[in-house]
Lab assay of single mutants.
Amino acid sequence: MSGIALSRLAQERKAWRKDHPFGFVAVPTKNPDGTMNLMNWECAIPGKKGTPWEGGLFKLRMLFKDDYPSSPPKCKFEPPLFHPNVYPSGTVCLSILEEDKDWRPAITIKQILLGIQELLNEPNIQDPAQAEAYTIYCQNRVEYEKRVRAQAKKFAPS
């Protein structure tokens, strides 16, 4: 494992614990031996107030490669969400998460999670990743928002 990646992720964890947006979660997972795995984080993004996503808490896994922060983490909703920019596998399609697009090593975990929260309610229809959600979003916004509200209710924190 890269010392650069681990040191950056340790800084990220410290900064997150000191200050993070209300309702968001970002925690490194534990290895079988109980030690912390900084390369694999369990996160959760709350649906934004005043949107059909409100009330939901959407679980996301963030996986970092050894060359982080040169390369972005892979962000994957578990379980996958109904959304035009979420692949059926759950992987998020967002330009700041793509090395050859808008990724920059200075982007923080907090910025990534806030960017994904923004994307939930403002899909990028130029870059669809899920045919069904994309089609319904474009053709029947009322039905799309109904499905999103049902999903938010399903993923409401207990």
Rank of each mutant, 00 (worst) to 15 (best):
R8E: 14
V25E: 02
K65N: 13
A133G: 07
K14G: 03
M62S: 04
L38C: 07
T51A: 04
C75G: 12
Q11P: 11
A133T: 05
K65T: 14
K49Y: 09
E118D: 13
D100C: 03
T108M: 14
Q11I: 14
I107D: 11
K153W: 06
T108N: 14
A106N: 01
S95V: 03
C138I: 13
D100Y: 08
P80G: 13
T91N: 11
E98L: 10
K146A: 14
P105A: 14
N31D: 08
L38Q: 00
E132P: 07
F22H: 08
I112M: 13
A150Q: 15
P46K: 07
C138E: 15
Q126W: 11
I136T: 10
K49P: 05
I116V: 13
S158V: 11
I136S: 12
W16Q: 04
D100H: 14
V148H: 01
H83P: 02
K48G: 02
I107H: 11
K30N: 06
V86W: 03
P28S: 06
V27K: 13
G55P: 10
F155M: 05
P79M: 13
P84K: 00
P69K: 06
N140E: 12
Q11L: 13
L60H: 05
L119F: 15
L57R: 11
S89I: 14
P88Y: 07
E12D: 00
P28A: 10
K153G: 01
I112A: 09
G34I: 05
L94R: 00
A133M: 02
A15G: 10
L94E: 06
R17Q: 03
I112F: 15
P84N: 13
S7N: 12
N40H: 14
A156C: 10
A150W: 09
D66F: 09
L119E: 05
P46E: 07
P73Q: 03
Q139V: 03
K110S: 07
V142M: 13
N31G: 07
G90L: 01
R13D: 03
K76D: 15
L81H: 00
A5G: 14
K153R: 12
G90E: 00
P21S: 05
Y134N: 07
F82Y: 06
Y68A: 04
N140A: 15
K146C: 11
E98G: 15
D66Y: 08
K59H: 14
W16T: 04
K18V: 06
T51Y: 04
I136V: 14
T35Q: 04
P52D: 11
